[in-house]
Amino acid sequence: MATQHSRAAARFMIAPSVIVLLLWMAVPLALTLYFSFLRYNLLMPGENPFVGWENYSYFLTDPAFQTAIVNTLILVLGVLFITVLGGIGLAVLLDQPMWGTGIVRIMVISPFFVMPTVSALVWKNMFMNPVNGLFAFLAGTFGMAPFDFLTQAPLASIVGIVSWQWLPFATLILLTAMQSLDSEQLEAAEMDGASAWSRFWYIKLPHLARAITVVVLIQTIFLLSIFAEILVTTNGGPGTASTNLTYLVYAESLLRFDVGTGSAGGVVAIILANIVAIFLMRMIGKNLDA
């Protein structure tokens, strides 16, 4: 019964969490905005004068900025491409009845439980290391020169590591979607003369469309802010070859101690992320309505 009184009481009751949430978001955002207009470098203590858009113009004209944008896009799109395709494939396979389904499913999902720093370290030292790594060993057994992944193809290597982490997530969502498909629809398609491939293409894949958009949306949000994997493996290098926007902001404020430019970069990142989010929501909102 939503009387005037109970509504007031409800507002009063949820006020603490709303206030905490607001402070949590608003204070850092306001401070970031504030710092982004100051000349504020930790290596040059003293005055922090107001400089207008200077930090923004430095950040946006930095050659590293363009590289970072391109790298961010490659990272996000590359990982999305691999995880969605791989996730669909694995979901189709895991949907088949087979022996030991339970164990196999848990094994498939387990990479998701490994924290990013740890998995990046494992990949860097145990697989991709040109001296001690498993890949180097394999190359050696075939008489080939070991490939130094993180130096020669740093961004592709990071795409690989991150894909490995996110593949279980995509698989999990797509597998549950696959299992919600009415088996009578598949039987009807079978009676209608559809081959296994046609059943996948005309029945299963359209059924998965919604789940695929969910995977794309959620992963994009997280992939825009990939950081730990880069920090642990390549430190954004060589040069800026594997620097994405998040890492560039980190480099400005915590490697060059330029809080002002770092903050300006943060604000730029927020704006870009919101533009992406708006487009995604539009696109996906349409798909979810249908």
Binding site: A188, M191, H207
Partner: peptide
């Protein structure tokens, strides 16, 4: 296989393809 038997079936849940 079912498709080669020349039979057609109407299912209890109708089993229509919802996206078509």
């Amino acid at each position: 296989p079912p498709a080669k038997r020349g039979l057609a079936m109407v299912f209890q849940s109708y089993a229509l393809y919802p996206h078509m």
